[in-house]
Design a protein around this nucleic acid. Sequence first.
DNA 1: TTTTGAGTTGTTCGA
DNA 2: GTCGAACAACTCAAA
Length: 485
Amino acid sequence: MSSTSPAVLWFREDLRLTDNPALDAAVRSGRPLICLYVRETGAGAPRAMGGASQWWLDKSLSSLSASLEEIGGTLLLRSGRAEVIIPALAEETGADAVFWNRRYGMPERETDAAIKKTLKDRGVDCQSFNGRLLMEPWDLKTGGGGWYKVFTPFWRALQAQYRPPPFLPSPNRITPAPAETESLKDWDLHPRTPDWSHGIRAAWEPGEKGALKRLDDFLAGPLGNYASTRNLPGVPTGTSKLSPHLRFGEIGPAQIWRAVQARLAAQQADEESAHVFLSEIAWREFSYMLLYFNPALATDNYNTNFTRMRWRQDDYGFTAWCRGQTGYPIVDAGMRELWCTGWMHNRVRMITASFLTKHLLLPWQLGEQWFWDTLVDADPAANPASWQWTAGSGADAAPYFRVFNPITQGQKFDERGEYVRRWCPELERLPDKYLHAPFDADPETLSHARVRLGTNYPKAIVEHALGRQRALDAYKTMKEDQSAL
DNA sequence: TTTTGAGTTGTTCGA
DNA sequence: GTCGAACAACTCAAA
């Protein structure tokens, strides 16, 4: 092998230098490197990112590019169909090897397989790695040889079988190979006219450095109380907030796993909290397995009984939900946090998703798409899997009769109202007693708090008891329709 | 092959 | 205020 032929390292959902198996192998191959990111468009491209994710991608690519330059490399940018770009780049540069970390959704898998075949036919070595999951979907099988459909046995098997591979440090030197690049600025990923990204910018530091810092900060403190505070949206450090970093692969789950285990071994972590936290990482894994075996996870009901579900059509209700104007403070606070910061606390994701699919009886796909467009952590596996879980159509889903009560959920998890007051300042002066149910407050209390329902804060768009019963009836009807077949 | 125990996150009602 | 049961069957995973 001539060491002068370059290799292509194709970055996709693994925008990091540390613990990156494809990058490590590419560097070890001893070839000059072409580090590439492709903005994929057209047939075979991944689902188009929403605005918030594009914002993140912009910053993450800047960060990756800067990190590469620190060690002598550069980040090459190209746009178009990967099936065309990758082989063409190999030909143009004389590259005789291509490295990447695997993807698990469709049509990416087909695209990657097609590229691999093309490259091999032309004598270009093509190697793929696991840089995104603890265990890949085909690695974890039930005793019967199938894939897990229930989380708990999946989680048990994962704990029993997973051993993290050795840590791969960042290369300290890269020899770049020249090739022409597009400009990140020209990709126009940052929003203009208007630039709505102020709130997002204030909340996040995209890129590998930000990811590692977030992990360190979380492990050093918040992890200790994770089991108890992770459900409290008013506690800013209650959760790790690693989700967007994981989504873009600025950090991998193996790094998180090792770091938590190291803390446990050093007796520097509360066992229950560490366990609960790792189980959240495992939910992400479970979602990827579901996506791998159910490529239409984002559009089709996993439980096909739900094809008979009679969802409502309600543009007004959907718009009110999107805008955080439902009249239920915990729901509105969540939707506004999402709009403003590109993120929403997990507890509140469940409450808002339940409200859309149960109280408003709107199809989960509407909510899934809205989250996809507005979340910085919008994940092709976790987002649809979680929406289906809440709607009741998913794998190991919440039983349908579990309808979150947005009033009691607020009282239980935002008792002092820190969260609601942060995002619904018009309710700031309401006493805690009525904060989660302003419609129950007497006129005097409302006027004293300067809340005018229907004027500066909406009336509830659906009464809780009515919404709940309507959802339960719809479910019952669906079952009856099913058995009538 | 059959059996058995179990299943992320809740709510409501009645004692 | 607190507690346990009912809510609905059904499918999964392992013995």
